[in-house]
């Protein structure tokens, strides 16, 4: 499949080499999740990672005795999934489509193998994931301050 339409919005694809894009296209599948669909769940093997084309995905944490808590939402251009890149390659959270959502899924194992073979490609992948993770870490730290007044959820 072609990733061209996503190249402008997705940090993963901007500045990636032509070879890199070609590789990703070779392991990509388009998927449409209907509203409410479970994309992956805590502890499952992380067999793919996703680029969101349209829609909205919620990361949830199961609260066992009560309804699940939404901890973060992700939208167009954003990367879903970090756990696929690091052992033990298992998901930490649950991901669910909050509205009808189009994603591109990339095969995790093949991408990891490509990283072993191609250091430039690997650098780009790790850098993108690290930048994304750092941004989310910063945002999470601010949220820990609990700045806004109000009620419990």
């Amino acid at each position: 499949m072609s990733l061209q339409s996503l190249q402008e919005t997705a940090p993963l694809l901007t500045a990636m080499s032509i070879d890199g894009i070609e590789f990703l296209e070779s392991v990509a599948t388009e998927i449409q999740f209907p509203k409410g669909a479970l994309i992956f769940d805590e502890d499952q093997t992380a067999g793919a990672f996703y680029l969101i084309a349209n829609g909205k995905i919620g990361l949830e944490v199961s609260m066992l005795a009560r309804e699940a808590h939404l901890i973060e939402t992700l939208g167009p251009g954003e990367l879903l999934g970090v756990s696929w890149l690091f052992p033990p390659y298992r998901w930490s959270w649950r991901a669910r489509a909050m509205v009808a959502t189009d994603v591109v899924a990339f095969d995790a194992e093949k991408t990891r193998r490509q990283c072993d073979k191609d250091p430039d490609f690997a650098l780009h992948i790790y850098r993108t994931v690290a930048e994304e993770a750092v941004q989310r870490l910063h945002a999470t730290r601010i949220r820990v301050l609990d700045l806004f007044p109000g009620s419990e959820s």
Binding site: R66, H69, L70, E72, R96, M98, R143, D146, F148, S153
Partner: peptide
């Protein structure tokens, strides 16, 4: 966007 929400929420969660 909100800081915390249950899975009922239709909007975003995050900063």
């Amino acid at each position: 966007t909100v800081d915390r929400a249950s899975s009922e929420w239709w909007g975003d969660v995050g900063l």
